[in-house]
Design a protein around this nucleic acid. Structure first.
Lengths: 351, 351
DNA sequence: GCGGTGAGTGTAAACGCTTACAATCACTGT
DNA sequence: ACAGTGATTGTAAGCGTTTACACTCACCGC
């Protein structure tokens, strides 16, 4: 207690840990430990520190803490795109969880820009310098990226990813697609198509791949085969859905029932239908996955998934890891529910 | 499983400014100056520093820079909500600008939570400790908040705010509403309503207030008065628009033409119409402001505003401020364009 | 009594940068 | 010649934490 010269804290300067030490009559070190809830602090000391800190309105400098080897107090939320409803919803839910834990959320949108992706995953050390952990929302990762992330000092959690060596939460996409398709089959349809399953250089993988699998599987269970012609590979977006449905109408022939990979693709499909003087469910049954807020407006039948819940859950898991939870990576699948609205119905059998 | 990780890689230490100094044969101080583009560095020194830095893959530690009184290298993007299309679009555009300038974007969503708002604006020092600047996207500020922000060391820029002592960009909401309303008038309608102009404890202010003003003004120019009954105060959301239109249909009587404060409100209105067996433009002309991606799907006539451009512009202004630009705060208004689609048409005059 | 133990506390050295201030050096005008 | 000047460079003192390590005391079993 002798090395500390009294430091008059003026009104412009924040109180430092030193001021707290002085006021509480303890050393900086003890204060630091007390503040962080570390062991080996007597109850008396703990109380004195807390009193002094609150009296001074003390708030630790994150910069100093970070530099001294502590944590940065922030996490990165990485998304492929930030503009779609799905990701906006997920980002906000995650941000809320982090904010409530006192963590700053650094948003990183890949925006489909290869240079951005490169910049981030190519230098994870740089990222690790600025954040403690990474929350991946719907980012499809290459093996090399998974490896790099796992090897980095960063804690990681993800949403909508599987087979990764960290905590992850999502829905069972195969099952969701299966449910949607089964609904279509149950209605009595006989001719099916699947819309807007995206494709990247590794083929139809990830979410799209799973949904296609669920679709195929459900049909197979009813001894129905899927003609390759009925699988329209377009991005899972309004535009993609629009182009896919247009292709169906113009060239491949309208099926009785259509399963769109996501609600937004279904919206695009609806637009294409309308432009051709067609509509659902009159001319075709249409179902999707998501339950976008616009789906209720358009009466779209869909398999609802809890987007915010998934993201919040994943954010929680990451937060816990950052607080030191150890153990095997967890995998959680949240349930989905079919919401029947007005774009699906039994086919009218032609005479 | 976290089983095998190359320890050597993880343990590796980054190059520090010291290493650069050593390699270049210059002092730390000179290196620091060279790296930051400060004056009083010879061309020779500059080159040597750059060579050494790139050879070592040097990246400054933001934590250390921050602690030493320099900049944090990050900015806060504050939004009232992150889940709507409007804000998602704006956030991503801003994030892109910041990322390209090497700035981290810390996302803060107010989420309508008073405690969050309090936490942020009540302790701007804490925020200033973690970010260099703040970008406000569509956040309606109280006078006290404007004052606090202006008094803080933070650089500030905003989108969709006026009368503030910092750079701001937006559209002319009065004029946009005027254009929308004039379109309705030009079509020959005689009975108008405005939907989903939000209201907070200070009355109808900000964007909603301006749009209401533009509406009233356009009608006044044609010697038309607005009955208070025809101003439906509800939040500018799908739900709000739905409730507003329902109120109109059920209780106040369907007008000939409706101006919704934003596209999403119009979507809600469309839903209400459909539920009553009505539709636009058959039973009512409907126009809004925004040009949401779903508007093309639904054929909504609207006044398009460049959301991403506004946000990017504001982000640019903030970036420049952070780089030392001085001068009077700038105010920019970006142009809007009326997009006529299928929810508006001339009234069929009853006999 | 005595080394051993462990909880509670303090000392001081990092952490990697910024920045006053001092130092150097070639010119300048007188 | 010589103080003055301005451009360039170096020295070293912080910035506010964390943390390895040392220290002080009961208190223990023997």
């Amino acid at each position: 207690m002798k090395g500390l010269r009294p430091c008059s804290l003026t009104e412009r300067n924040r109180a430092t840990i030193r001021d707290v030490a002085l006021l509480s009559g303890l050393s900086i070190c003890t204060v630091s430990r007390a503040l962080r809830g570390l062991p080996n602090v007597s109850e008396d000391a703990q109380r004195r520190v807390e009193d002094a800190a609150s009296k001074l309105g003390y708030r630790a400098s994150s910069a100093a803490a970070r530099l001294a080897g502590g944590r940065t107090g922030s996490v990165a939320i990485i998304v492929p795109r930030a503009t779609t409803w799905f990701f906006a919803e997920a980002v906000e839910a995650a941000e809320e969880v982090f904010a409530d834990s006192g963590l700053d959320s650094v948003l990183i949108s890949l925006r489909g820009r290869a240079d951005v992706r490169e910049r981030i995953f190519g230098d994870l050390d740089a990222l690790a310098q600025r954040v403690d952990g990474v929350l991946l929302l719907g980012v499809d990762l290459g093996d090399d990226e998974v490896e790099a992330l796992a090897a980095s000092p960063l804690e990681v959690a993800s949403m909508g990813l599987s087979g990764v060596p960290w905590d992850t939460v999502g829905i069972d996409d195969v099952r969701a697609a299966h449910a949607a398709t089964s609904h279509l089959v149950g209605l009595g349809h006989g001719d099916f198509a699947i819309l807007a399953v995206g494709e990247d250089d590794r083929g139809t993988v990830g979410t799209s791949g799973d949904r296609l699998a669920g679709f195929t599987q459900a049909l197979a269970e009813h001894h129905l085969e899927v003609h390759p012609d009925r699988i329209i590979k377009e991005p899972s977006s309004i535009e993609g859905g629009y182009r896919a449905m247009t292709e169906l109408i113009d060239n491949r022939g309208l099926p009785e029932a259509v399963f769109a990979a996501c609600d937004e693709a279904a919206f695009g499909a609806l637009k294409a239908l309308r432009e051709h003087g067609l509509s659902a469910p009159k001319d075709v049954s249409l179902i999707a996955i998501d339950d976008h807020p616009m789906s209720t407006v358009l009466g779209l039948t869909t398999v609802a998934q809890p987007v915010a819940d998934q993201a919040a859950f994943a954010a929680d898991l990451l937060t816990e890891r950052l607080q030191g939870r150890a153990g095997e990576p967890q995998v959680h699948r949240l349930p989905v529910t079919l919401i029947e609205r007005k774009t699906t119905r039994r086919p009218r059998r032609q005479p």
